[in-house]
Nucleic acid binder design. Structure first.
Lengths: 242, 242
DNA sequence: CGATGAGTTGACGTTTGTCAAGGCCGGTGG
DNA sequence: CCACCGGCCTTGACAAACGTCAACTCATCG
């Protein structure tokens, strides 16, 4: 079981809490969600803002034939604006990957909070900018990247995000994901994810234990395969305090 | 040459103008950009907001080897928040596809405007939500869609966006794009774009003239190939007045 | 102890990219 | 006016990447 729970006083959550006392209230009154629960279905009516306090969520979309694509993983301190351009419905399925705690805030409340605290508004702006930058990087790799590129990038992206939540990058880190989930995130079949990860292990770039506890052995090589400059990526996708 | 210029009193631009007198000022003082001009380079320092008044822009990212992915087309009435999570640099290359007119607004001015006009803030929220919904749909198709699915979707997405700018869907519409650009948008090679579009033409789903003036003959078939319900897609990606 | 679900590996088929050649069109310079 | 050139589209032949199917292992759980 995944017990290395991230704490709400770190990463994006810390930025938010620093910016607004009211956010801290939300972290206390957040609702518990059990792993596997579907919180929102693509097409539902919903116009609120979702604040993740703890745990991993995924937003996804799928075709009618069942083919599913994970749009993003949503980690503690992230904010999900899932509502469509019509302002009434959502275009994403939101699911808890691990046990999680989320606050669901009506837009009117949210807007009032942003108006009341310019610091909070700036912090939220940074968090949204970071999410958008991540999405752009991923679009590039889904469109033009090979399987190794996509997987290396996913691993580095998630390890950076975990690091900003207080994990150490030198250590082995655990992703609460199956290979199928990684495939749904990278647009690959689970079989090909397996093959590609085995190859990275054989080349002494990664080490795995329990199939999905990952330790990066050769960060430079992995970054090159991912097609990134690690420091630049961190600037892009890690929201900094305003 | 592309002369069917969209006008700033339609679509998203109309929504914005209705919400704020100040926006109308920006549309008058916008700067002219010539087709082909690179406005921003991935990595530049830049923390302003770009408002498109007229013409087509593209935002893109690329690998060091030159492989390029168009992240989004930016049409009149769209707003580009290109700044990264660090609040200082941009993670996108912004280029004018056609002659264009854009306003570049400092974030402080922009924030002040949003604070001053709740209507504007709501309209901007809708426009951002629509852009995000479009991106999610495209992520799904880049990850799990076949070439025909991606191309059919791109055509329908763009035709919907043009329609909300006042074009008629029954008519032939012109995309100011080469097949290479469509490939960069859909993550395909230009050769495969060509093949796939020829096949759609042979099946009497599309008709083309001048290679890229498109008329949709069988909207139902195209929607099915794209994997969408046309009405639902319009709800998602067309910002409605708040 | 069987059942289930995840990972692993091999064989094979399909989709898509790459390379190459040719055609069409608009522009440019003699 | 014409020859030439460069882009872009088109098509075919071939190669590479990735998905699918199937079988096996292993750990977990009831």
């Amino acid at each position: 079981m995944w017990q290395d729970q991230t704490r709400c006083d770190q990463g994006g959550m810390a930025v938010l809490c620093a910016a607004s006392e009211q956010i801290r209230t939300f972290t206390r009154t957040a609702q518990q969600i059990r792993a596997g629960t579907v919180i929102l279905q693509d097409g539902d009516e919903f116009d609120k803002v979702v604040l993740v306090v703890d745990g991993w969520l995924s937003s996804s979309k799928s075709f009618e034939d069942g083919e599913l694509q994970i749009i993003d993983f949503i980690l503690p301190g992230d904010i999900l604006y899932a509502t469509n351009g019509d302002g009434m419905t959502v275009g994403l399925t939101l699911e808890a990957i691990t046990d999680a705690r989320v606050s669901i805030v009506p837009v009117s409340t949210w807007r009032t909070m942003l108006m009341a605290s310019p610091d909070l508004a700036r912090a939220v702006g940074r968090i949204r900018a970071a999410a958008q930058a991540r999405t752009s990087e991923r679009l590039l790799r889904l469109g033009k990247g090979s399987a190794p590129t996509r997987i290396a990038f996913a691993i580095l992206e998630l390890s950076l995000r975990l690091r900003s939540l207080g994990h150490d990058m030198e250590e082995t880190f655990h992703l609460p994901l199956t290979q199928k989930a990684i495939g749904d995130y990278t647009g690959l079949s689970s079989v090909h994810v397996c093959r590609t990860m085995r190859r990275l292990v054989r080349h002494n770039i990664l080490e795995t234990s329990d199939h999905i506890d990952i330790r990066i052995l050769d960060l430079a090589a992995l970054s090159e395969i991912a097609g990134i400059d690690l420091e630049r990526l961190e600037q892009e996708i890690a929201p900094t305090a305003a």
